[in-house]
Computed example of a mutant assay.
Amino acid sequence: MNSNNITTYKFQSATGALKYNLTNDYMFRMVLQKNNETLTLLLSSVLDIPVENIVKAEIQNPIMPGEAVDNKEFQLDIVVLLNDNTFINLEMQVVDYNNWPERSLSYLCRKFDNVVRGDDYIEVKPVYHIGFLDFTLFEDHPEFFAKYHISNEKDGYQYTDKFHLYVIELNHTEMATEEDKKHKIDTWAKLFKATTWEEIKMITSTNPSMNSTAEEIFAANSDFMIAEQCRVREDNIIHERRMKEALAEKENKIAEQAEEISIKDDKIAEQAKELEEQAKELKEQAELIAILQKQLEEKGIKD
């Protein structure tokens, strides 16, 4: 029995919870990097490109399996060169740092600057930034799969067809359109979020093309070095979440203190106004007394 058959056999026998699923950005990177079939099928679904039209999907920034990532790095993006003519940036993100629009645009703009020195700007390769987010990007505008482009504000006329920003919210599969379902984008999202082997088997039972992905997830979870880096990433994410919660709590306390100070300031201002009115009344009374005393003196009445 060769290694692939062994992995298939072990995967089919696996039960219970996964150590790490594909929302772990290290696991996400390892599976896509090690299994080009998964990368090709995913791009085919998201970009609506027939699989047979994807001749080559090459990751431009590979890392060694199990290689440690700088703790200061919050995300593990994957840069893909598709068919030697299109750059695609893939990112998995589960923590909302409230900067995704700015971050994704920064990544996209950097990659858009890909004209070889001496070439005309018309030669720029198309770029895509595809973000898989396990949170709602815009609370007032939730959407499963959103596509953003540069277009005319008046009539929507597209400025260029080489600049694309896609956002897939993994927590909103219930909002997937018929078009999304047709291309199995919601199925990919469910596979990414699956937390048990039973869930994965249920997905692959009706989507056999994802079998190799499931087997790669199993193999990566079984690799000690990869699993260890996934653990490090999970620890970092937990740390970041706690820091964010602590910061939010601190900001709330500051806001509460500011409100209390504002209330006190209002009370002080009100008291100052009352004192000012009292002083004004006392002044008026003193002026009135002075007038009455003067009138009495003029009439020859003295104390």
Rank of each mutant, 00 (worst) to 15 (best):
P142V: 06
K181N: 12
E37D: 15
K294A: 12
E178Y: 08
K34I: 01
Y20H: 15
E256M: 13
P65D: 08
E284D: 07
E287P: 00
I254C: 05
N98M: 05
E260V: 10
S13K: 15
N221T: 06
K182A: 11
N5I: 09
A14R: 03
D186E: 13
S13L: 15
E91L: 11
A227T: 06
Y159P: 02
T213L: 13
I254L: 15
I130N: 00
K253H: 12
T86D: 03
N89H: 14
Q229I: 03
N4A: 13
V79F: 08
I261Q: 10
L275Q: 06
L170T: 04
T38M: 05
E178P: 01
T40R: 15
N36I: 03
R110D: 14
K250E: 13
E251A: 11
V80H: 02
H172A: 04
E298D: 13
N211M: 05
T206V: 11
K147W: 02
L105Y: 06
Y9Q: 14
I54G: 05
F144N: 01
P50H: 00
N211R: 12
H183V: 10
R117D: 08
Q60I: 06
A176R: 08
L90I: 06
C230M: 07
Q33V: 03
K193E: 06
I150Q: 15
